[in-house]
Design a protein around this nucleic acid. Sequence first.
RNA 1: GCGCCCGUAGCUCAGCCGGAUAGAGCAACGGAUUUCUAAUCCGUGGGUCGGGUGUUCGAGUCACCCCGGGCGCGCCA
Length: 607
Amino acid sequence: MKGRDTRCAVRTPQRGVPTMETFQSLLAKKLSDSLASAGFSDAGELTPATDPRFGDYQTNAALVLGKQRSEKPRIIAEKIVAHFDVNHLCEPPVVAGAGFINFTLRPDAIGKKTVEVLRDERLGIAEATSKKHIVIDFGSPNVAKPMHVGHVRSIVLGDALARVAEFLGHEVIRDNHIGDWGTQFGMVIYGWKNLLDQRALQRNPLAEIVRVYKETNERAASDPQVREACRQELVKLQAGDKENTDIWNECVAFSMQDFDHVYELLGVRYDIQCGESFYNDRLAGVVERLLKSGIAEVSEGAVVVFFRDIPELADRPCIIRKRDGGFNYATTDIATIDYRVNDLKADTVWYVVGAPQILHFKQIFEIARRQGYKADFRHITFGSILGEDRKLMKTRSGGNVPLRNLLEEACRRARKIIEEKNPDLSEEEKIGIAQKIGIGAVKYGDLSQYRMTDYVFSWEKMLSLQGNTAPYLQNAYVRVRSIFRKAGESAVATPLRGVDIGGQQIETGRRPVATALSLEDSAEINLAKRLCQFAEIVPQVLNDFRPNILANYLFELANGFHTFYEACPVLKSEEPARSSRLAICHLTARVLQRGLDFLGIKVPEKM
RNA sequence: GCGCCCGUAGCUCAGCCGGAUAGAGCAACGGAUUUCUAAUCCGUGGGUCGGGUGUUCGAGUCACCCCGGGCGCGCCA
């Protein structure tokens, strides 16, 4: 029953650290109690209702038990319901359909829980029960090549997973496994020595390196002499030749500058950046060890690992040392695993790398397993970004779209929209907002999709102010902030003493501290319910590495807020509704901000 | 040839370990603005879930086959 721990977990609160329970976990516990007192074993699961008509949560426990015991599910359901202790949490559960049991939360319970969430710094999100040491390998650009759209999914997905994992209490190391070594450097160095334009290099170093690399590549394709010369340059580099090493160092440095610029735009950081070259002096030892242990063998002059006992890989051996004695990326990846497990003490390694490398990682993980590594290795794959023609996204001339240009265009386009909608903002504000919206739109466009599907990149769609987009979510946040800007001093009249609302601590003197919100309108009840669900959703992101679950939740939350905003006046309403509504507004903003932050997206105060 | 991924509304996509009458957004059409940002909200129409067989109380979801698209398959990464 994989995943049950995140669906209806019953946590034992740690001593001294009261862990807030979600409605789901509370109901799951009560269900478990009622099953026991009705004489049944735990069965089925408690999940959010599939349809509002069925209430808020449902369980199929009676269906599962009915099958096990060959009894009528509805009869069993009635017995479970009879033993269910509602205890102010929900209305008496209802048996429906084939034997489902439906639970509808009581508004007062929602009001109470909302205050709990409001008072909790973690917004109700519990830490993971078992803390992991996770190395996340994502991004991994190649030196002497510009980062292009193909890298964006890995970066954005890896970063989001890292943010969620960290919040859940895991120890995360973000590792940028830069492609800074390999056969392409023969060509780069040849090009550097023979084709380099110093003035162009000063103007735009990376562009010039890319140009000479490309040109060399073309020459090598048709001229065997050039090909051989490149090979010689590579051999010299790998032998430690001073001149070539200097050139290589310069290329790496220029590339890193470009990468850093993109990371800054994206707001992405790494803990370590151990590129391929980092592992150079370990490669010979890796091969030697694998040969000695019998995991690898010599075949046709190369050192190879066979997987004869695995049907899927039986005719797909993995070369770890080429016939010419050189090492390849498989060797590097094995050395990388050694380092991550032995030196970084990882018990979990996530590779956020495109689907085409599935076979490669199957082989690498199997080799790790044969070496006795027990860590949990996951290859987190993702689909491609397509252009409007439904083919891999390319520039008009057919090249890769540089990521830097793409992000800059996102900001430009966002700027243009802001200019139209809100021309009175200061220049400084416009720049900041354009960046938050533009970058956010690109990230959200990606993370709101299921990671495996290819998707069509569309400026119009991702920057639209309506629909499931970053600007729509950001706008919900902005609306809340606007309320608090307007409210000013009057927000202080809230009875929610001690609760931080709108950046100010509320003190109300002798008034009693409210422990629940007063929720009347269906729009505010729905919104509060949604806010309470945040804690149920976030851990699910790591279940199968699906940030789109969170994106979807945030969209529904923003939608619920906009509905509430239309239906329920906040500042003009009477107490106690006014305070209640201010409180859910405030909580909405916090959840939106926190949730978007998990996706690496910033929120503007105005837009 | 073998392997992996995808196929859901006109378009772009959700739908996690099988759960009730399959959902959003966009586009289309019809409404709402003395207002805390209409950058919004409410409503309507729209589907043999690529096709078939099977597993069972129950299949978009699982198994097998077929069709269509993408990707990968010793010395590139």
